[in-house]
């Protein structure tokens, strides 16, 4: 048990540190890499909660795909930090207000005696070794929550189509390739073999 707690605190420390670093480091590349580190620590903590499916999916989807694209975009952008920092002092009071409000809300949840207090939830008993988080999630999603699951899928599909429809502009004068036509080309369309007699140099 003590080992698990140590692992938990190690992951939490790294995660909090990485999360703070995401918003404080100057170099945007480092910010993205710290976000990756934060995701990793979150996956580790989920693993401790015996939620291995969620933990690995977090790594597959966010670390393996979303953050790669993030890194891709951030590396391509030529970010100039000076104009980004211009309004810092002007917006500082509002930012502090929002931050304090969120911190107070979090603390209220933690300390409230009503429904959410830390004392309300006993330490969950560890599941037996044949417990499979993946199977449990799958059985819930495809039986009790089938309709919400399908609706969520449709909403995502609509979002994909909307994103494509919003950004797809057909401008005139764009050169495109037709791969089918490229594959279908035959030799005689580009090369012509000519039979001719050998010639003698002129003037001899």
């Amino acid at each position: 048990m003590i080992v698990q707690e140590l692992i938990f605190y190690a992951f939490s420390l790294v995660m909090v540190f990485a999360a703070i670093a995401v918003v404080t480091v100057r170099n945007p590349i480092y910010a993205v890499l710290f976000l990756v580190l934060a995701f990793f620590s979150a996956a580790g903590i989920w693993m401790l909660l015996e939620a291995e499916f969620l933990a690995i999916i977090l790594v597959v989807v966010y670390v393996g795909a979303v953050m790669v694209l993030f890194l891709f975009v951030v590396m391509m952008l030529d970010i100039n930090l000076v104009p980004l920092k211009e309004g810092f002092t002007r917006y500082l009071p509002v930012a502090v207000l929002v931050a304090v409000a969120m911190a107070v809300e979090l603390l209220m949840v933690l300390w409230s005696r009503g429904r959410f207090g830390a004392s309300m939830f006993p330490v969950p008993a560890p599941n037996s070794s044949d417990y499979s988080n993946t199977r449990e999630l799958g059985e819930l999603l495809y039986t009790n929550y089938l309709l919400p699951f399908e609706v969520a899928g449709v909403i995502l599909l609509v979002a994909i189509i909307a994103a494509v429809a919003l950004t797809l502009r057909t401008r005139p004068g764009i050169k495109t390739q037709d791969p089918a036509a490229q594959v279908r080309t035959r030799r005689d369309e580009s090369v012509r073999l000519v039979k001719m007699k050998s010639e003698k140099p002129r003037g001899t």
Partner: peptide
């Protein structure tokens, strides 16, 4: 001998690209 072995493998094979991207940058 873990239950989510297939997922674990998929997750790790997708991580290798970070080395390449970071090296390139």
């Amino acid at each position: 001998d873990v239950d989510a072995g297939l997922l674990y493998v998929l997750a790790l094979t997708s991580l290798g690209v970070y080395g390449i991207i970071i090296a390139g940058w």
